[in-house]
Design a protein around this nucleic acid. Sequence first.
DNA 1: GTGGTCTAGACCACC
DNA 2: GTGGTCTAGACCACG
Lengths: 131, 131, 131, 131
Amino acid sequence: MICHLRTDNGIPIYEQICSQVRNAIDQGTLLTGERVPSVRELATQAAVNANTVARAYRDLQAEGILQSIRGTGLIVTAEAPDICRGARLQMVRDRLKSVLAEARQNNISLTDVRRLVNEEWKLAAEDSATT
Amino acid sequence: MICHLRTDNGIPIYEQICSQVRNAIDQGTLLTGERVPSVRELATQAAVNANTVARAYRDLQAEGILQSIRGTGLIVTAEAPDICRGARLQMVRDRLKSVLAEARQNNISLTDVRRLVNEEWKLAAEDSATT
Amino acid sequence: MICHLRTDNGIPIYEQICSQVRNAIDQGTLLTGERVPSVRELATQAAVNANTVARAYRDLQAEGILQSIRGTGLIVTAEAPDICRGARLQMVRDRLKSVLAEARQNNISLTDVRRLVNEEWKLAAEDSATT
Amino acid sequence: MICHLRTDNGIPIYEQICSQVRNAIDQGTLLTGERVPSVRELATQAAVNANTVARAYRDLQAEGILQSIRGTGLIVTAEAPDICRGARLQMVRDRLKSVLAEARQNNISLTDVRRLVNEEWKLAAEDSATT
DNA sequence: GTGGTCTAGACCACC
DNA sequence: GTGGTCTAGACCACG
């Protein structure tokens, strides 16, 4: 599993890691029982502080997605796939909620928001196509 | 001008103040040349520290929306309406962009995002109705 | 004596008043023994707070330029012309000193400063010509 | 980077800090991508409150000169050198402009101003030599 | 350790 | 009364 992290987009690094682990499980890249890269390993590979990786793994354990096996490391739990299915959506939902709250506070209509979503989605699609 | 501030939504208080001032200008509640409530006045009215209000006003000055008149107070500049018109949309657009980027990273489809927007908007509308 | 005051150039209003009184004396518009406009009179004429005018007159008294005559008002002292001759220059000198200090702190050379002086003076001359 | 601050010249401390950071960038003492001293570090080194330093850094961020890296510190942006080059001159130019305006209002000739500039510059040079 | 937000209260110049 | 600067210290999220 390889992580692509950005330090400039305002999303906490540990959250990016969590998100990518959940995603890998969703996509079947990481299977139940499989070992996840060690803290140090992922930290050096992603050029990130080990504490940050540890924090991400800690959160994932708390969510029941990872499980620590003595002397072995962390493995994906049996329940992980189920948990992840919902989690991705929930995370985006929360952020979206806060954006919508801000939009409402600024008297921006639902119509405007919908238009923005379409525009920005299209732009993002083009961006990722060229990258 | 009365400010309604929330300390529980993660948005800094000073930003909420800025945002509401811009909004009031957009809606014509605050006109060019008009005085904005004094720092201390708004601070007591909104139950917030004077420094926090001062910071918001300072930011608005830097944007060219407010202008300080020595010993008298702060007034809305002539350019303020123009500046405000674009600013509020742009701000929401930027945040939306980052959420959409995250959604894409999590393999969430545009359809899903649209559904989330509708759902959350409806919830927010109900919330604000009861408040 | 008529005062032209600006509230937007950062120079305290009371200083502008002082400066214009001194100037009027220098130019012979205000003569020794002559009455200066009353605080209220000048305040209304210049659309300025009476306290501000009072403060200016107080400073001018402290400098020995004005003198209070019971029941009459304030008159220009005999020493005023002498005092004023130097004062104008000194005031500008002080402000210039602070600007030069800032220039030095920013590694701007004397040559640069001279060039700026010439440029800005020319611009100011053109401005005042059209006004 | 070491800051030399004076509390007696009327220039706000946070502005002096901004100015010296810009200067360091101009001179190549601070390079793009390099970390600036931490808020607390600079605060103790310069015997100044941390909030004051934070304010200066915040202003520099708003100008696009510094960029915050989460949990790591502040670094000099790629655009900083360009921004700084123009900024320092412009700042002095603005102040100079206001002084010249005052000089004109007091009937001081360009010749007089030039003389003052030379005199005061020389004095300042001597001052800084002995310090 | 880092920056960021917020509070509380002092002091200043200006009107 | 007004805004502006500064200090002191608390709390938070992040790495």
